[in-house]
Design a protein around this nucleic acid. Structure first.
Lengths: 186, 186
DNA sequence: AGCTTCAGTGATAGGGTCTAACGCATGACG
DNA sequence: CGTCATGCGTTAGACCCTATCACTGAAGCT
């Protein structure tokens, strides 16, 4: 049973995170400003500290959400095999590139992700291994290659490094997916 | 012929960039502070604006330097073929991970790299294509795979995503290098 | 009805970027 | 060699930011 206070609190927390996502999409994580969020919600800056202990904690919470949403996206791909999973990953990433970079982008020296996101990461990896198991032997190694190769194409595409290169990122991505379906020579 | 003024100016600019690199290595690009740099050099914050028009311009200059240093690293690898080039890339990246992420990390929405760094990037890519040409047909496609696959492993390693996974990043990297040496099935 | 809890406020400290006006030394030049 | 302009570095200040603190007032609870 939730009290009215708790419901209100959850509501405001959700609104803060929503505005935070908008700001991050617009100007990246370093551009996120608690003051600006508060203003958008019609309150003053310090009020937000009722809901998040610090700016870092808010960002950590967003990272948590990002991991969670990737997990549900991967789960939703279900038993569609490696190719289906790869497709789901790409559409998920393209839906919000800054969300992708929040997880896989430039690390902040000294920052360590909380343990629960690392657990989520492990679960996602397990899903990946399971999907690769039905495509041949050596599921772990296959899943690892899957991850690194797709991340390679995806992160470069999302960062805009293919701009002006007369190249279709989707095709490049698809080619890597195909490369993962055939067995690797030692 | 350089005047004393010019020499002094170049010297101070170099010192600023040196301290900037130290700060970036220690706390990432968002943590770079002109005030802190000025203090380290024994002057006050505004003095730095004699040397760089803005914080962004200083960072842009560092990005330029990063591209330049990667180009010289790649050039130094010379005619050692794809494998040698891959090794040079990895040691260059490991030498300063934040430098790598300055080039290939999270992009800032709205920021566009200056044209000369894009030219440097093209030259580096040309080197890569040349190295791949001696390893078989389809040099461009091969070079592209080379780039995306190595970046995939390297960026995940540098960001610490392999931590606690009981896995040797160097071996993973080497495996990808091997994968690039064999011809790809369509 | 009274009391407690807590959301939101303004004030304040301390940091950042960046502009503007000002002293002052140094190099340039007649 | 003396004069003068160039330009380096300063302080002051505008305007951001995060974060803390004491306080007010309303809402919920007993």
């Amino acid at each position: 049973m939730t009290t009215p206070r708790e419901r209100y609190r959850a509501q405001v927390r959700a609104e803060i995170k929503e505005k935070a996502w908008e700001q991050i999409a617009a100007s990246g994580a370093p551009g996120l400003s608690l003051n600006a969020i508060a203003k958008q919600l019609g309150m003053t800056g310090p009020a937000l500290y009722r809901y998040f202990a610090s700016r870092d904690e808010l960002i950590t919470e967003l990272i948590r959400e990002a991991y969670g949403s990737l997990e549900t996206a991967v789960d939703a791909a279900g038993e569609t095999g490696p190719a289906g999973l790869a497709g789901a990953l790409r559409t998920w990433a393209l839906a919000d590139r800054q969300r992708y970079f929040l997880m896989y982008g430039t690390p902040v020296p000294g920052y360590h992700a909380p343990e629960d996101t690392r657990e989520t990461a492990r679960r996602i990896m397990a899903r990946l291994v399971a999907a690769c198991a039905q495509a041949g032997p050596g599921a772990e190694a296959r899943a690892l290659r899957f991850w690194t190769r797709l991340h390679g194409v995806l992160s470069l595409e999302l960062a805009g490094h293919f701009a002006g290169m007369d190249l279709d990122p989707a095709e490049l991505y698809a080619a890597e997916v195909r490369s993962l379906e055939q067995p690797e020579l030692p």
